[in-house]
């Protein structure tokens, strides 16, 4: 019973830290994926009286991804039957050039408006039209959830670190006597702190395994999958195998640092 209690204190704190990190990783992936979709759905049409190449305008903003000319003939073909040949020929003479500008990444409305006004100052560009699908509300909500979770994550992190520090003080007290006695009989540091490091490794593994199991469960949970699908996100975003390395590094890193801190503070009594 005591053994379980010994493990719980550190394992729960570590679990809280790891779960926060994993939640932030998942949310970050969802937001990025959503931004990617939005970026694809955004389209800026440039109307110009001369050819515009990406090299002419890329210096304006790093957002600019590519510039593709739009074939005007396809538009004219649609109205071919409704106009005389003479009118069409006149339209052809005065018709400007159209270009589709694709963005590198998604940007908010304000940045797009700024880009528009800068594009309008480029020689030859007459008009800039923005076509977008209405996604801004959901995106804003995702950003809000992300910043809220980051804040809660930070708070949970701080509380967990305080718990860890408290646990370290308990460890220091609990292991001091044994380390003291072993030291008096000539035990080297690695031997007298072996129990502590073993405890740290076991606790780190327990917390790591608990978080990975939770995430694996969620990634196969139908409700979680449906929720992600409902906001247009890929359910695979819920758990990536790359996360295992991050979670293991944090879990073992924090736990072993705590044990090393206790060992470093050990001082033989006179």
């Amino acid at each position: 019973m005591r053994s379980i209690k010994d493990h719980m204190a550190l394992t729960i704190s570590l679990f809280a830290i790891l779960f926060c990190i994993e939640s932030l990783l998942v949310l970050d992936r969802i937001v990025k994926s959503y931004e990617n979709d939005l970026k694809e759905n955004y389209s800026l049409i440039l109307v110009a009286d001369r050819s515009v190449k990406v090299s002419d305008i890329s210096h304006i903003d790093t957002l600019i991804g590519s510039v593709e000319p739009i074939d005007a003939e396809s538009i004219l073909k649609e109205i071919e039957g409704r106009m005389s040949e003479e009118s069409l020929s006149k339209i052809r003479q005065i018709m400007p050039l159209f270009f589709s500008l694709k963005l590198r990444r998604y940007a908010d409305r304000e940045r797009i408006e700024k880009l528009k006004s800068e594009l309008l100052s480029v020689a030859g560009v007459k008009e800039v039209h923005i076509f977008e699908k209405v996604h801004d509300r959901l995106y804003s909500m995702l950003l809000f959830i992300k910043s809220t979770l980051t804040l809660f994550g930070l708070l949970a992190g701080v509380v967990s670190i305080l718990l860890l520090m408290k646990q370290m003080t308990i460890w220091q007290f609990e292991h001091k006597e044994r380390m003291q006695i072993m030291s008096l009989f000539g035990a080297p540091v690695w031997l007298r702190s072996g129990v502590l490091f073993r405890l740290a490794v076991v606790d780190a593994f327990l917390a790591f395994a608990a978080v990975v199991s939770t995430m694996l469960y969620l990634s196969s949970n139908s409700e979680a999958i449906e929720f992600l699908q409902s906001i247009g996100a890929d359910p695979d975003l819920l758990f990536r195998y790359d996360d295992i390395a991050v979670l293991a590094a944090v879990s073992f890193g924090v736990s072993l640092t705590c044990a090393a801190w206790v060992v470093a503070r050990f001082k033989e009594e006179q």
Binding site: E177, R178, L184, F185
Partner: peptide
């Protein structure tokens, strides 16, 4: 210390 035996008044056994 690995070649010395020490006996303490308060025993100093590992609980």
């Amino acid at each position: 210390r690995r070649h010395i035996g020490i006996i303490f008044q308060d025993y100093k056994l590992i609980r």
